[in-house]
Design a protein around this nucleic acid. Structure first.
Lengths: 226, 226
DNA sequence: CGGTATCCACTACGATACTG
DNA sequence: CAGTATCGTAGTGGATACCG
């Protein structure tokens, strides 16, 4: 790596930068709005800080990232990667449905869920939803708190009244969040259980967002279908 | 490499496959129509045959490539990478204009030129155009022969009558082919010289194609501009 | 919080040669 | 033409500890 492909092809020049391990995932995190080092780390937890630092420096050197007062932000050049990154993600979503247990991670899932929660759809005031991964021992219970347009996800009981409890395996909820399967279908198959008063129960699925890629894929499929 | 990112994110799953060195360039070659092993090699000349073989096997294992009777062809899954690969290439074309001398390669350029020649624009019968890279010693002179809708590019004199001779540095002609600069502009700047009868000289630029990425970028820019 | 420093195992990659 | 075989090394990247 770090060596040139010896090709003038713009794709080759792009891949010289982007095909280094982890690099595209860091760009993804930046596109999703993370700017602090430790924020970025949460998005790529299996990466050592040393390596993350090194990659960020490389991205800065290539003019993709700007590092100022402790914030990493995409430059115009970096933001322009949006289309390509989405295309790659949509392709992955469409063609690589299966993933192994080693790809499941409740922290990562809740971190993702947290930042796609459509707070506007939630009731006014404070609302707390509990999530229980029925197949886990550790990191089994989570609480999602929305108040004043702010979201918090924590793995300890914050002590607020719980409006609804969502129960599913980690794999199932991951599939639902990715958009591989709808809430409705998962609930019909009894793979997801929502414990709450009936009227609340109907709303809960709308309180969760889903991956941007799921929306992008749906949009693309709708277009190509006519 | 070859290790999982430990993420369920479709982008991560995609990059597990695609961020291995050379892999995307091989997909590019397949998208451009190469199917034979040695044909693919011409598109990635700096790659050892052992590694190319290994990558092709990996692509086949992932269901991206189908290998049958000596032909490597993209599956539906592989063909669906078209959008993503183009996006990456367009990004590279837009933001990485500069490349070093080590990225210049007359063989690669002529191999690319050959397969984008719009034969329909050429005169009927046989036409032979000579290309001279004014800054090279070896691989300095090339001949492009179009006859019966077929194109040939060779680095030895095929012996046909030469209708026009194009002279430029390797770097200049590479820029023109990539679409960084137009024929018209390069000729006005005297960076490209076409030796031919006046009426032929006007047509020669249309006899050469240019990179698909140049067209894609132009299309994209046109849309966003208006 | 926001990184750097150091070390080491591993292996991917490139080069070259060779085979059916 | 279509790949395998072999080998050495450069360098990645993971782990751990440490610093400002």
């Amino acid at each position: 790596m770090a060596t040139s492909y010896g090709q003038f092809c713009p794709l080759a020049k792009a891949m010289e930068i982007l095909d280094e391990r982890w690099t595209v995932l860091i760009v993804r995190e930046l596109l999703l709005g993370s700017t602090r080092f430790n924020e970025l780390r949460r998005g790529v937890p299996r990466m050592s800080p040393a390596l993350l630092s090194k990659r960020l420096q490389a991205l800065e050197r290539h003019g993709i990232v700007d590092h100022e007062d402790g914030h990493y932000r995409l430059t115009a050049c970096g933001r322009d990667l949006h289309t390509a990154v989405m295309s790659l993600g949509v392709w992955g979503l469409r063609w690589i449905e299966d993933f192994g247990d080693e790809d499941l991670d409740p922290h990562l899932l809740m971190w993702d869920v947290r930042r796609t929660v459509p707070t506007a759809s939630w009731p006014p005031g404070r609302t707390c939803v509990a999530v229980e991964f029925t197949d886990l021992q550790r990191a089994r219970r989570w609480w999602l708190v929305v108040a004043g347009g702010q979201v918090d996800a924590c793995d300890y009981d914050p002590g607020y009244e719980v409006t609804a409890t969502v129960r599913a395996t980690l794999r199932t909820l991951t599939h639902v969040w990715r958009g591989d399967v709808s809430w409705e279908r998962a609930m019909r198959a009894r793979q997801v259980e929502i414990e709450a008063p009936r009227d609340v129960r109907r709303d809960v699925p709308d309180w969760f967002g889903r991956s941007m890629l799921a929306d992008a894929l749906a949009a693309q499929t709708a277009v190509s279908a006519g």
